[in-house]
């Protein structure tokens, strides 16, 4: 299915899926960090790259991105994107260390682990709700430009149209010391699979 074929009912359904998946992920994150985590109302929007770089983040912004591939009935990609200072704060909370200054191996593996947990709880919610089988791959860490990461994630997923479906959850830690974006990019076939499960 191409994004332009989506109807308002499809959007409502995808928003509901994103709300439940993201809500589950936020709960896991809160339990893991023992902090209150707020989730903004999830958005499911069709945006051009220009709009993405104006509304979400500029294409050159340096970000930490942890990506996972979803395998199974509805394959796709999860991208967890945050600024380096937030990534360091997240690692501090996880590791219980105050003096973290750089993204060393320990910090990177802590971040991968937390994203693994976030993505797994998101996927678990989708699996239950949609009655589909999905598992996630080992997470990958990158520190790069937001634009390079996001465009490549969509292009490699097979999306070559001018507008992209942005399925986004924003998580905010209580003291606003962490602000993370979670993008879910279902592959074109998966979008069909997810949409068709409405009728079940």
């Amino acid at each position: 299915m191409s994004f332009s074929e989506l109807t308002p009912i499809h959007y409502d359904f995808l928003k509901e899926v994103t709300n439940i998946g993201g809500g589950n992920a936020a709960t896991s994150l809160a339990q893991l960090l023992n902090k209150r985590i707020d989730m903004e109302v999830p958005t499911v929007r069709l945006l051009s790259y220009d709009e993405i770089f104006t509304n979400i983040k500029e294409e050159e912004s340096p970000v930490i991105a942890i990506s996972l591939k979803v395998l199974g009935d509805a394959p796709g990609i999860f991208l967890f994107v945050l600024e380096e200072k937030y990534a360091l704060h997240l690692a501090k909370l996880l590791l219980g260390k105050e003096d973290l200054k750089e993204l060393d191996d320990m910090v990177v593996s802590a971040l991968k682990e937390v994203v693994n947990i976030i993505a797994s709880s998101y996927i678990n919610a989708l699996t239950r709700m949609l009655n589909l089988n999905m598992v996630s791959s080992v997470p990958q860490f990158s520190k790069d430009m937001f634009g390079a990461i996001l465009t490549t994630a969509y292009i490699e997923s097979g999306y070559i149209d001018d507008k992209q479906l942005i399925i986004e959850n924003i998580f905010i830690e209580d003291n606003k010391k962490i602000n993370g974006y979670l993008f879910f990019i279902p592959s074109p076939n998966s979008l069909d699979t997810i949409i068709s499960s409405i009728n079940i």
Partner: peptide, 23 residues
């Protein structure tokens, strides 16, 4: 120059494109 676009111009102008990944 945005993604999936091209521009032409004359010296001394600069042409810039940001965040090339697989592009």
């Amino acid at each position: 120059v945005g993604i999936a676009d091209y521009k032409i111009t004359k010296s001394p102008n600069n042409l810039i494109t940001l965040g090339l990944g697989s592009c």
